[in-house]
Design a protein around this nucleic acid. Structure first.
Lengths: 194, 194, 194, 194
DNA sequence: TATGAATGAGTCTTCATTCAT
DNA sequence: CATGAATGAAGACTCATTCAT
């Protein structure tokens, strides 16, 4: 890893939670230099502009989340258990502990949808990838006869993700753990009925 | 309505879509004077600061949305039909047509959760009110024997809202109408089974 | 004159010699605030950007020069004397005393020709106006039988201006007064032979 | 030629048109590394600073121009024809084709006169050398009985150069070819009358 | 109460230059 | 010698807010 690559990674690492909590517009280059201890020139030597930092940070946060998810899912054997890992992860605050500020896809989607097309596109792509992963699990479960043959993979994946993202928003907004439980319980039931 | 009240309303009206699309941090006082044709002094004569404008605008957007919803719901007779008005409204883009930038509660929740406690509190309150309205419908449906006696009002309301908010985020992010349909179809089925 | 107009004029007045000596690229907004004692916000409240200040300053410098010239020319009765006012003005440093940094048209032409199309256009227009004024004097002299009927007004005007601008450059560069005199003597002879 | 000398030459060659079009203040070290493909360190290894690059580039541009002129002049036999090579060269765009951005002496004189004494001094020296060359031609023509014995060499040289530099400025500023022709025609007549 | 000019700290970005490797 | 990452001052410009009129 070259010096430049190390510095890039360092900047991304140090500013990941910054962007995910304060948003793109709310994070200043000054915040970035303070969080890293680097100078402005150094940041601009490694990134073309703030947009590029934000994009790299988004990819980092999004990838980190997917890796955490994949790690948990790989521990489970059956496809139903793999899907049930989702309510489990959110119940235990497994993802929340690693990612300050909530779901990066949700955060980015909401901030960028009307204002920042590049970030929006990145978030859209990350969402689609995630959806495809869940749909693939569902499809494999069907082929493996774990799930009913009438189950629709993409439809199921979208519904799981809608519930999860809605739940994340609600629980972060209200701080009520029972609201989270309501959604996760319903999600578990939904997965049992696949 | 006094002059001051009229000016306040005028400012709120003209800047509602501004805040809902660009967010609090992304909307400047300059944007506000341009959107209204008023001077800086005039805006500050009617609002203490930008926060106060944002709060008033949020209340306006949130109230407008609730009124639109209430109008549709009041047209339905049975409680099941009242709940089914939700998928209907989102399917027809009834709310989207009236509110630029998507759901104000979702938008405000995401932007404000880590950065702006007053706005977060307002969004939290608006969300709770909404949830209570849906829960009240469910409860009335139970008492009216339309729904099963085992149905849980608050749990049901939270699940409906999680699906809806997740769906709003997904459909705005990806632009895919079939993703919206997947969630709304599942929501209809869920309501039929109450 | 409104407050804004007064401030605009004040800024233009105070920064005229700045732009004419240091050039557009060499003059910073900081130089402008220091020269005026105003804040950045104040300058930007009165001008859209640095370009607009530069354009206004150019117009001011150019107009001031033309007024000084017109004042001297109007004192002369015959058209030949009016033209001879040019070598006289440059010999006596009449214009140099009023305009720091030399001829604004020459300065702007050289800096802007490859880099700043708006300024270039303004300089081109100012030059053309000047040329037209001299050509008009020549034409009037012909009609008045002071000059030969074969004299070409525009050709004459261009040649006078080329000599003058070349002389300004040379005398500012070398600081040699006799170089200036060589050109002005030739110019006088040329005017005598019209 | 050593490695260092070759690199110096390479940098000078590649940035000559850059400085002559954008000026000293308008050309950045970044522009220089981009135009050369070299690194910052490499440029600074061969030049003390930007000033030194600019000076070397000016000398290069100025020398290149003088060589082009000398080549044309050497083709002519009589001294009158040698002087007439000047209007010929400018008419045919012989110099303009080789030097982007116009006359380097004129450009440097105007930008540097109030701001950059070293460059100003270099331009002044280059101008004086040029003037001396023309004056020498005039003197030789007098001694050779081609020109009148009353002709003043230096005075003639300065007038030729003033016309030329003024014409360059005017034709670059306005883009009008007939303005150039007016000055060159007058210059030809002036040379015929020596 | 309304005006709109002024404030000055803040925004993102580029500058010429240095120096450890 | 060359590299290219780092520096930090300076660049143009915008911000929310104030206040004399």
């Amino acid at each position: 890893m070259s010096k430049a690559e190390r510095t890039r990674s360092f900047i991304i690492e140090r500013t990941s939670s910054l962007f995910n909590t304060k948003g793109f517009a709310g994070t200043s280059m000054n915040d970035i230099t303070e969080a890293t201890g680097l100078t402005k020139g150094s940041v601009y030597g490694n990134f073309k502009n703030k947009d590029e930092v934000a994009l790299a940070v988004f990819e980092n946060n999004s990838t980190k989340m997917q890796k955490l998810i994949a790690a948990e899912i790989s521990k489970k054997k059956s496809y139903r258990e793999k899907l049930l890992a989702y309510p489990e992860m959110y119940e235990s605050n497994y993802l929340g502990g690693a990612l300050d500020g909530g779901c990066p896809i949700l955060n980015t989607a909401i901030e960028a949808d009307d204002t920042h097309s590049e970030l929006k596109e990145a978030a859209s792509q990350a969402f689609t990838d995630w959806k495809d992963k869940i749909a693939a699990l569902v499809k494999a479960g069907i082929e493996n006869k774990e799930f009913k043959s009438t189950t629709q993979p993409e439809e199921t994946a979208i519904n799981i993700l809608a519930s999860i993202e809605g739940m994340v928003m609600i629980s972060r907004l209200t701080g009520k753990l029972n609201y989270r439980r309501y959604v996760l319980d319903a999600l578990r039931k939904q997965i049992q009925e696949l």
